[in-house]
């Protein structure tokens, strides 16, 4: 269980790293939001799963999974709001010019 947990955590760290690299390398706001919503959520999910495997109590394990679900919910809504606002302000600028 402990070893499997560490494997999950290591994989999660890799996804966080790749998400950050994507954030730096992707060309614009929208593509960068893809990097955040996908790679980082998967990274957090794997770290949460890894910690849950090592938790030793069901209550604590459930808590880690819950944190993942809540963060995922927040990041999906927040990235949607950022994308929508960016799109609207882009449209405004095009209308002005």
């Amino acid at each position: 269980m402990a070893i499997l947990g560490w494997l999950f955590i290591a994989a999660g760290v890799v996804f966080f790293l790749m998400g950050t690299i994507a954030l730096l390398r992707f060309p614009d706001l929208f593509t960068r939001l893809h990097a955040l919503t996908k790679a980082d959520n998967l990274g957090l999910g794997m770290i949460a799963a890894g910690l849950a495997l090592q938790a030793g109590s069901a209550l604590l394990a459930l808590k880690f999974l819950l944190i993942w679900v809540l963060v995922m919910l927040a990041s999906a809504s927040v990235s949607h709001l950022i994308a929508r606002t960016a799109r609207h302000s882009q449209n405004l600028r095009e209308h002005k010019s």
Binding site: G19, I21, F26, K38, L42
Partner: peptide
């Protein structure tokens, strides 16, 4: 989705 983004970034 995560692998897709990671792969593109790599």
């Amino acid at each position: 989705g995560g692998i897709d983004v990671a792969w593109r970034a790599a």
